[in-house]
Amino acid sequence: MDDLVAGLLAGKVRPLAKAITVVENDRPGKRELLKKIYPQTGNAYLLGITGPPGAGKSTLTDKVIVKLRQQGKTVGVIAVDPSSPFSGGAILGDRIRMQQHALDDGVFIRSMATRSHLGGLSKSAVDVIHLMDAAGKDVIIIETVGVGQDEVDIVRIAKTTVVVMVPGLGDSVQIAKAGVMEIADVFAVNKADRDGSDKLISELRAMLDMVKNKEKPEIFRTIAVDDTGIDELVQGIYAHGDRVLETGLLRKKIVEIAESELRAYLLDTIMERSTNMASYEDVVKRVADKKITPMDGVDEIFIGLGLQKQN
C-alpha cells in the first residue's frame, strides 16, 4: 500500500491505475489509500464535459486535451459510458477518439462504466478524481452523457461544466426538459457547420434570457473534428473558472462537493450496516405482510444499530 501511495504521489502511471481499481471495486485498503492521499488533493481544475450521445463529447475532449498539453498542463480524463442494465457489462468506447494521447505521459485516460448501484458512480468517480488530483494532474476532465442523477451529480462537482449540443436533435422543449440549462457554465454548439446550428443558438439564447440569478453561460461554436473554435472554447472555460474564483462560488462548490461525498458514504454505511443485521430480513418480511409500516421498520433498524429513534 505504501508503495502504491508513493508511486501515485510521484505521478507514476501504473500505481495510479492500480489505485483507481482499488477504489472502483471497493477493494480492501481503499479507506487507507484515500486517507493517505486526501491531504494532497484540491489542486486540479475539474472540467465537466457533457451532452447527448453522438454530440461529439469525446472528439471535443480530445481537442481540448491538445490545447491543454500545448499550455504545458497535465491532464486526467474520466470517460464515463453506461453499463447495460441487463447484463451489467459495458462497452467503453470514448477512448477511440483520444488514442493520439495514448503515448503521452502527461495524459492519463480512464474509462468508467456507470455500474448501476445506488450512488455508486458518483461516489467512485469522485474518488477517482481525488486520485488523479493527488497524482498531480493539472486538469481533470469528466466526460459523461449527463443523464440520470448520478451523472448529473458528477457534472455538478466540476468547476466548469461544458454542455455540448448539436443541431438536429429536437426543438427548444428538448433543451428545456433535459435540465442542461441548470448545469451548463459554457455551451459548445458542436458540428456548427451543419444545418440548424443558427437556429439552435438562437433557441439557446432565448432560453438563457429567462435564466435569473445565475450568470448566463457563454455559447461557443465548434467543429471538433477539424479543431474549429476549440481555442475560443478553452479560453471561455478559463474565463469562467476565473469568475468562479472571484465571486467566491468556488468555496461554495467545494463545500457542496464535500457534503455530497459525505452523504454518499453515509447512505452506504447505513445501508451496509442495516442489511448486515440479523433482524433485517425479518423487518422486510413484516413490512411485506403489512404488520408494520416502512417508517416503523426504519425505527426498529435504527434501534438495532444503537441509534436514536426518529421523533
Binding site: 447484463s87 457489462g89 462497452i91 468506447g93 477511440i96 488514442q99
Partner: peptide
C-alpha cells in the same frame, strides 16, 4: 459486454505501444 464484462474498445490501427 452481454456476458457482463466491461470492454474498452479503442478502434482500428493501433500500435502495440498504444
Amino acid at each position: 459486454r452481454d456476458a457482463g464484462m466491461e470492454v474498452i474498445y479503442t478502434g482500428i490501427r493501433q500500435t502495440p505501444e498504444q
